[in-house]
């Protein structure tokens, strides 16, 4: 941290004092850098978080501000309401190997991961698993409406039957049939 600070200072002091020939490019670089500066310490944000209103901070900086004014938690930049729960951490490449411990500051709030809709995950359109046949063939070309309704067995379908039982074998057989139907369906789509 200290060394990077020294660097920035050197750079800005040289570009400040000098009518150097490459001062233009330096200015542009500086502008780019300041895009990712924390709104509190004015350094490049470390352990960066962004508020719902879109303002960037170091997590330690923002945390300290929220602690300073516990009864009145507002964004330092735009005064929008802000809270610990509602900031989003930013993970850049290499952010995992940050060696500086986060001292007294609690760990950054975790990112909220919304799982993708299981129906659309994986083998799209042909989930023979939990979602069954009905769903997969629901994509609708009308000649298959027939199959969907007739072959849609056991609506509240229990989990897979134990291995080796008759039901298990039947289910496997049916899966294969459905798979073939699916292949035929695709084929039909391609030919149509």
């Amino acid at each position: 941290m200290a060394s990077s600070a020294t660097e920035t200072t050197k750079e800005s002091s040289t570009s400040g004092s000098g009518s150097g020939d490459n001062s233009e490019t330096k200015d542009e670089e500086k502008k780019d850098d300041s895009m990712f500066e924390c709104n509190i310490c004015l350094d490049t944000a470390r352990d960066a978080v962004v508020s719902m209103c879109g303002h960037l901070f170091c997590w330690p900086c923002l945390h300290q501000w929220l602690e300073t004014r516990p009864n009145r938690q507002v964004c330092p930049v735009c005064k929008a309401a802000i809270s610990k729960e509602k900031v989003v951490p930013l993970y850049g490449r290499g952010s995992t190997k940050q060696e500086d411990p986060r001292e007294k500051v609690p760990p950054r709030p975790a990112g909220q991961r919304t799982e993708p809709d299981p129906a659309t995950a994986g083998f799209p359109g042909f989930g023979f698993g939990e979602n069954g046949f009905h769903m997969s063939f629901g994509i609708g070309a009308f000649p298959f409406g027939f199959f969907t309704s007739t072959l849609n067995f056991g609506e509240p379908r229990p989990g897979a039957a134990p291995r080796g039982t008759q039901q298990h074998l039947e289910e496997q057989f049916l899966s294969k049939v459905f798979l073939w139907l699916a292949v035929l369906f695709i084929f039909w789509l391609l030919m149509a």
Binding site: A5, T6, T9, G16, C41, L42, D43
Partner: peptide, 19 residues
Amino acid sequence: MAGMSPSERRLQKELMSLV
């Protein structure tokens, strides 16, 4: 620069841009 507190670092930055 290395021995600066966070507040001094920020003030240093502000001073430089103000100058």
